[in-house]
Amino acid sequence: MFCLPDVLLQGGPRGLIWYVTRDPQGNVVANLSGTTAFLLLGVLTVVNVTCVGKDGRPPPPPHGQ
């Protein structure tokens, strides 16, 4: 069965390796550090948005009660 986490677990590392090593004349360390910083920024953005969405207020009661 096809599942999104499977795609991320298999395709993510392969894509990262391809992106970092695609230019043999380039600086692999600089490419890897830039990619890592970009991925961390994305993850932290998702976490912050999630935390703002879960601000601790209880949900409103359903209509009719």
Rank of each mutant, 00 (worst) to 15 (best):
L4W: 07
L9I: 06
G12A: 13
L39S: 00
D23N: 13
G15P: 03
V29M: 02
L8C: 12
G26P: 01
D6F: 15
V7S: 08
G34I: 03
C3I: 09
W18N: 12
T35D: 04
V29E: 00
G42C: 14
G11C: 10
D6P: 04
I17P: 04
N27D: 14
P24E: 01
V29Y: 00
N27H: 12
G11Q: 15
C3A: 15
G42A: 07
G12H: 10
L44Q: 01
P24Y: 00
W18P: 06
P24I: 02
C3V: 09
L41I: 05
I17F: 15
V20R: 02
N27L: 08
A37W: 00
T35P: 01
R22I: 07
Y19C: 07
T45I: 08
L41G: 11
G11M: 13
V29G: 00
N27S: 15
T36L: 13
L41M: 13
V28D: 03
N31K: 11
I17V: 13
N27C: 10
N31D: 05
V20Q: 03
G34Q: 03
V7F: 15
T45G: 14
L44I: 01
Q10A: 09
G42D: 02
G26S: 07
V20I: 15
V28S: 03
V20W: 00
V43M: 12
G34E: 01
V20T: 09
L39Y: 01
V20S: 04
W18E: 12
G11F: 07
F2Q: 09
I17Q: 14
D6Y: 10
L9T: 09
L16W: 07
L4R: 09
L39W: 03
R14I: 05
V29I: 02
P13K: 11
I17H: 11
F2T: 08
T21Q: 05
L16V: 09
Y19E: 09
V43E: 10
L8N: 10
F2Y: 13
L4S: 11
D23P: 06
T45S: 13
S33K: 12
D6L: 11
T35E: 08
V7M: 12
T36R: 04
D23Q: 08
G26T: 00
G42E: 05
R14E: 12
P5I: 04
S33C: 12
G15F: 02
Y19K: 05
Q25K: 11
L4G: 06
R22S: 15
P24K: 01
V20M: 06
T36D: 03
L8A: 15
P13G: 15
S33G: 02
F38C: 05
G26H: 00
F2M: 08
Q10C: 09
A37G: 04
L16D: 09
W18H: 12
P5C: 09
T35C: 13
A30G: 06
T36C: 06
P5G: 04
D6G: 11
T35W: 05
G42V: 07
